[in-house]
Amino acid sequence: MKGISQWCKAHRHEPLLPRWRPPPNAAPALVATWEAELRALVAHEEGHRDLAIAAGAAVAVALETTPPAASAEALDEAMMTRADAALAAARERERAYDQATAHGARWPAA
């Protein structure tokens, strides 16, 4: 879905991440642990971004491939049903992703 990819690049969404400025006397091991945890969190959130982009593409495909219907109401119903199914599948992928990664605590995803 070229249009969706272009929109996502133009409307970058950056997750709100925790910040910590270690004091000069911070233990090097603590700083290294913080940096590793932050990298894992960023990777996890990028996974959510990728899943959201895929969900948008799946909804677009579901709508674009809806067969003609006898009436506008029937077409609306068919499109809603197809979009709802695509979104339900996307929500399940998000749930499975969070479960596999323990919401980012276990990285990379199993």
Rank of each mutant, 00 (worst) to 15 (best):
M1F: 08
M1L: 10
K2N: 15
G3P: 00
G3C: 04
I4K: 07
Q6V: 09
W7P: 00
C8F: 09
C8G: 01
A10E: 15
A10Q: 14
R12V: 04
P15F: 15
L16M: 05
L17E: 12
R19V: 07
W20N: 02
W20E: 03
W20V: 02
P23W: 14
N25V: 04
P28C: 07
P28H: 09
P28R: 13
P28F: 09
A29H: 08
A29G: 02
A29M: 07
L30D: 12
L30W: 06
L30V: 08
V31H: 01
A32H: 05
A32C: 01
W34E: 02
W34I: 01
E35G: 00
E37V: 02
L38N: 02
R39F: 03
A40H: 10
L41V: 01
V42H: 05
A43T: 12
H44E: 13
E45G: 00
E45R: 11
H48S: 07
H48T: 04
R49T: 10
L51H: 06
L51M: 04
I53V: 15
A54P: 00
A55V: 04
A55T: 05
A55E: 13
G56T: 01
V59C: 11
V59E: 12
V59Q: 07
A60K: 09
V61T: 07
A62P: 04
L63R: 13
L63V: 15
E64Q: 10
T65D: 11
P67F: 04
P68Y: 12
A69G: 07
S71M: 12
S71L: 12
S71F: 12
A72R: 14
E73C: 02
E73I: 02
E73W: 08
A74K: 13
D76M: 10
D76N: 12
E77H: 11
M79A: 06
M80F: 06
T81Y: 03
R82N: 09
R82M: 04
R82P: 00
A83I: 02
D84I: 00
A85Q: 14
A85M: 08
A86R: 09
A86G: 05
A86K: 07
A88P: 00
A89D: 14
R91D: 11
E94G: 01
E94V: 06
A96E: 14
Y97C: 03
A102C: 05
H103L: 06
G104K: 10
A105I: 01
A105Q: 14
R106D: 04
R106Q: 10
R106W: 08
A109G: 03
A109W: 05
A109M: 06
A109Q: 10
A110T: 08
A110S: 13
A110W: 12
A110R: 14
